[in-house]
Amino acid sequence: MKAKFTLSRFSAYYGSHRALQQIDLLIPTRRILGIIGPAGSGKTTFLRSLNRLNDLTAGFRRQGEVRLDGEDIYGAEFDPIALRRRVGMLFALPIALPMSIYENVVYGPRMQGINTRSQLDQLVESSLRAAFLWDEVKDRLKSSGLRLSGGQQQRLCLARVLALNPEVILLDEPTSGLDPISTAKIEDALTMLKEQYTIVLVTNNTMQAGRVADATAFFFMGELIEHDETKKIFTNPAQQRTLEYVTGRFG
């Protein structure tokens, strides 16, 4: 199995607080990696290290390396802007930018220099279809993205990421604010999407990892406790703490 991301001895700090300790991890291509663990265990920091969004946070430092297709993304030659175009991200709360549905979707592509009307139209349709949103919004693409419901907004955000045509999609608890039906729609979309994309899914809903992830990693207090096939993590984990967490005895 080909590795998309390779982390070796990667640590992250906010000021003097160490948020991640010496993480070693392979993230395989075109599979879904679930990340579970209690609040404050470093899941989000881990995710935001993969597209260097942490660079924007005051006081962030890191050690060790993260390689994407063998290239060190924190290397001096590596352009974080180009990185973020290859590695899309979906946030915990659906954040539609205050512009039309159409403009939300083409926000990324426009910056990559795609400007012809027909190309953009096509991209909007295919992205919205892939995010299972097209039928609900095809007649009001020009209306504000903020008018959509929470679940629709999150699918709009997904479409916006897909329009970048990324290689990797990072999801940070993407269904934490959604009702069960919207959650199911997002999960369906993810299962389809792994045919094409490498997906890293941070979730506070342990069962969600069990449902959609191929492999699962358990984080605790900034450490990677265990990483294995999802089935193994949920039925026969090597570590006692993992067992206690997935069976709901702590966390």
Binding site: L53, G88, L97, G108
Partner: peptide, 27 residues
């Protein structure tokens, strides 16, 4: 202007100036 707007823009591969032009200033 909410920080989350900036983060979304950056995560979509926008540069800082582009983020300011398209997201920060209009809002």
């Amino acid at each position: 202007v909410p920080t989350s707007y900036r983060e979304v823009s950056f995560s979509l591969g926008a540069t800082r100036w582009r983020t300011i032009q398209r997201v920060v200033l209009p809002n």
